[in-house]
């Protein structure tokens, strides 16, 4: 049954997943191209010096890309079902409703991982060829909170999308905005390193919030 749910989600989001993969790797590739252009114009040493003296990481344009990709995936995955009120059908499958929703969320998180990892791998691959390990790791560590924000945006949007009433959606939305702000407080690159394990655990726990919406949905709450 879980396989069937994964298949259903793939039918709904497969196209968006491919587009997201293109976007994610495209933006990462563009950031790398810009660095390659700096290297060809001013030499690799210019890149190193700017990184060391100004604490620049050259990939700032990626900052909100994972966030919007995560948000978009949740909308594509959950909004049509909620709008057409076909989400009820999922609850009538021979599987506990919370397990069905957990499987849907797991599919979403796995999709995001599949979208984000190639971008990280591509960046890592290119950066290793021009930068010392300290510098390319500095860049990749600095981007991790942004990718985590993508997963958080997905799980929080799923929570809001599954919520049956608009009043509660507004409250949940306000909470989600504040929670997402947490991923963009960085005053410096690598500022999140010590906090990342805890932040990752909390981010994955956002999946629990969708269960609250599910319970309210099953209880028949509506506007």
């Amino acid at each position: 049954m879980i396989k069937a749910i994964f298949y259903k989600e793939w039918i709904k989001t497969g196209g968006y997943g491919l587009l997201a993969l293109l976007l994610s790797t495209g933006f990462a590739g563009y950031a790398m191209l810009r660095m390659a252009r700096v290297c060809s114009l001013k030499g690799a040493d210019h890149l190193w010096i700017v990184m060391l003296q100004r604490d620049a990481i050259f990939v700032d344009l990626l900052q909100f890309v994972p966030l919007f990709i995560g948000l978009g995936l949740a909308v594509v995955q959950f909004a049509p079902e909620m709008y057409r009120k076909s989400f009820k059908l999922t609850l009538h499958l021979p599987l506990r409703a919370d397990r069905a929703v957990a499987a849907m969320l797991a599919y979403g998180v796995a999709t995001l991982a599949a979208v984000f990892l190639p971008a990280l791998a591509a960046m890592g691959g290119y950066l290793q060829s021009i930068l010392a390990p300290e510098l390319w790791q500095h860049i990749l560590w600095s981007t991790l909170p942004w990718y985590l924000a993508g997963i958080a945006a997905y799980l929080l949007t799923a929570w809001i999308a599954l919520e049956p009433t608009w009043g509660r959606r507004l409250i949940d939305g306000a909470m989600a905005l504040l929670l997402l702000r947490l991923y963009f407080l960085a005053p410096a690159p690598e500022a999140y390193n010590g906090f990342l394990p805890l932040l990752t655990a909390v981010t994955l726990c956002y999946g629990l919030l969708a269960m609250l919406s599910l319970t309210r949905f099953r209880d028949g709450r509506q506007d």
């Binding site: 919370d98 909470m175 929670l179 726990c205 629990l208 919030l209 269960m211 319970t215």
Partner: peptide
């Protein structure tokens, strides 16, 4: 699961109040 979710929700709400107010 529901109880854990509820607990997590209120923990997050408390965290946001302690942070934002």
């Amino acid at each position: 699961m529901w109880k854990t979710s509820k607990l997590f929700f209120w923990a997050l709400a408390a965290l946001l109040v302690l942070w934002q107010i």
